[in-house]
């Protein structure tokens, strides 16, 4: 079951095509990464999903239904450029935003209190936003995004400007929300976070999809069959001479490239046969960051 499905979505502005024939699905209860360099069309895409703008052509389905006027209440959106009313009190502001998402004032109050309690910021209820630090107002913003139990949560660079403690706090919340069945669309260009959190990703550049799929599968597709071996003692000459394409040999570690057909077990067996004292052995997987840069650069050429 997909919480979100895009079919051939196109959005053009006066002088450029921001979203060009984009299709992907976000599985229910998954964390999905929407990646792309600056100006790739991520924000345009998010604005279409949040019904802020409409696509020129193509279809968007939320929980199996074509997007309609009631859907914004099922989506929680935290934009990259965050903002709150500076002169309003935290409580009033959250109540207002929650009510705009369709909660009754009573429900909103109960849920907000629970959330603020959870973040240990209930005492901020009567504080003005102008008096909060950046990290503090980010927590408030996060609460505003999720208070109405949206089935799809869209977070645009949610960790920017957060210290490691608050980053972990929000990360834990994201996992918990996922546990409860929410799906998270996570837009960023911080690859190490994507690798850590996301199950599936879509990479877009210049409005077009470059990559789409599970993180593990993508890494597998892009791996270069490089293996790292740490050893003790002397490196047998048979290894340096035969069979193995040594890429680097520094200290007590060699990195070599295997043939495409060979399994890592075969390679390991070969190494043992050559009498090497192996301390560790592992295949080097490409980082998403490397894949990202490689793909984007080649698509820009």
């Amino acid at each position: 079951m997909n919480v979100l499905s895009l079919h051939n979505v196109v959005k053009a502005y006066a002088n450029h095509v921001a979203v060009n024939d984009v299709s992907f699905d976000v599985k229910k209860g998954s964390i999905f990464g929407l990646l792309g360099p600056n100006g790739a069309g991520k924000t345009s895409l998010i604005r279409i999903i949040t019904t802020i703008t409409a696509a020129d052509s193509g279809q968007v389905f939320l929980n199996g239904e074509p997007l309609n006027r009631l859907h914004p209440n099922e989506i929680g959106y935290m934009p990259e450029e965050r903002g709150l009313y500076k002169k309003m009190k935290v409580g009033e502001q959250l109540l207002y935003l929650a009510q705009l998402k369709g909660l009754s004032s009573r429900d909103a109050k109960i849920k907000l209190k629970a959330w603020l309690e959870k973040f240990e910021i209930l005492s901020w209820w009567d504080k003005k936003v102008a008096d909060l630090s950046k990290g503090m107002s980010q927590k408030v913003q996060f609460v505003a995004t999720v208070v109405h139990d949206p089935s799809l949560i869209i977070l645009d660079e949610p960790f920017s400007g957060l210290d490691p403690i608050n980053t972990n706090l929000i990360k834990d919340e994201i996992y918990q929300l996922k546990q409860k069945g929410a799906s998270i669309l996570f837009s960023t260009h911080r690859m190490e976070q994507v690798e850590e959190i996301c199950e599936d990703i879509v990479l877009i550049n210049k409005g077009k999809i470059l990559l789409y799929g599970g993180v593990g599968k993508i890494k597998n597709d892009f791996k270069e069959h490089l293996f790292s071996v740490k050893y003790e003692g002397k490196l047998p000459e048979t290894i340096t001479n035969h069979e193995y394409q040594i890429v680097s040999n520094i200290g007590n570690e060699i990195i070599f490239k295997g043939e495409k057909g060979q399994s890592s077990n075969d390679l390991l067996r070969g190494l043992i046969r050559n009498n090497i004292n192996i301390v560790s052995y592992n295949e080097i997987m490409p980082s998403l960051n490397e894949i990202f840069i490689k793909i984007v650069e080649s698509s820009n050429e």
């Binding site: 209440n73 965050r82 009313y85």
Partner: peptide, 14 residues
């Protein structure tokens, strides 16, 4: 609202 950047949150609801 525009300079505050809250407007994007608002129009994802209204």
């Amino acid at each position: 609202e525009k300079i505050n950047r809250i407007v994007e949150v608002l129009i994802s609801s209204v």
